[in-house]
């Protein structure tokens, strides 16, 4: 029994001495990032007991107004980042919400997904304030005038989502390929179904006139999907009547 207690006290004592003599080596959860070498010998230069690493301690060296513009020594950054400056100016949050100064040998320290919900509403709603250079110059995006948030969310940028079902339901014969129905260079509000051989203009005209339907310009108004039996009957008799315009 005595051996047991002696083992405990010895291990505790040796461990405590090791912590006092070599605190960084004994306790660090990861290598400190470049630029924080001076903090290795003094954990409390960043940490407060029971409070982690509060922003006030980070602010000792990283002046909030200088982030993204100047170095900690006050000189200009080689490449200023207005976006970084905006984020730190408007978002009220603790530094360690995104930053971990104890990195990892196995890879970059995990900075969490940027919490967009901490941005003021008027800033968070306008993606362009931070992401102005990110809009691709492809056929899809050059014809879209809507805000990015129409298809992209702050939860995850990709995949983009758009509820196309309310306009037209995709299926095996009508896969979600924009160019199949929306001609390049035209607005996404415009579409055509006559792009494939199944829906040639002659065939559509013939089939509809046979049913007494004269106005068949806006296909999706009656056909919410590619299923020809899935038609919307608007309560009007079909025959020689024309469909009402939109």
């Amino acid at each position: 029994m005595r051996r047991t207690y002696i083992s405990f006290i010895l291990a505790l004592g040796i461990g405590a001495v090791a912590i006092l003599l070599f605190p960084y080596r004994a306790l660090t959860p990861g290598i400190l990032r470049t630029g924080h070498e001076a903090q290795k010998s003094d954990c409390f230069s960043c940490h407060t007991l029971f409070a982690g690493a509060p922003a006030s301690k980070c602010g000792t060296c990283h002046k909030p107004g200088d982030i993204g513009l100047r170095t900690v020594k006050g000189g200009p950054l080689p490449k200023a980042s207005p976006r970084t400056q905006l984020i730190h100016r408007v978002a009220a949050m603790e530094c360690d919400r995104c930053h971990s100064e104890h990195g990892s040998r196995l890879g970059a320290a995990a900075t969490s997904r940027f919490p967009h919900e901490l941005l003021p509403v008027e800033v968070g709603a306008g993606c362009a304030a931070c992401h102005s250079g990110k809009k691709p110059a492809d056929a899809l995006h050059t014809t879209v005038s809507a805000e990015c948030s129409r298809c992209h969310s702050t939860k995850s940028w990709k995949p983009a989502t758009y509820d196309h079902d309310k306009l037209f339901r995709f299926d095996r014969n009508h896969p979600p390929r924009c160019a199949d129905c929306h001609r390049p260079g035209t607005s996404l509000k415009e579409y055509t179904c006559t792009g494939c051989h199944e829906h040639s203009l002659d065939r559509i005209e013939r089939k509809h006139r046979k049913e007494g339907i004269m106005n068949f310009e806006n296909c999706r108004k009656c056909h919410p999907s590619g299923n020809e039996h899935d038609t919307i009957k608007e309560g009007k008799q079909r025959g020689n009547r024309e469909h009402e315009d939109d």
Partner: peptide, 24 residues
């Protein structure tokens, strides 16, 4: 028993350090 005590002592030091440096 001594091995268990060594384990407990080291764990106690680790847990204490975590409690002291954690943001509560």
């Amino acid at each position: 028993m001594p091995l268990t005590m060594i384990f407990l002592a080291l764990s106690l030091l680790h847990i204490t350090a975590t409690v002291l440096f954690w943001r509560w």
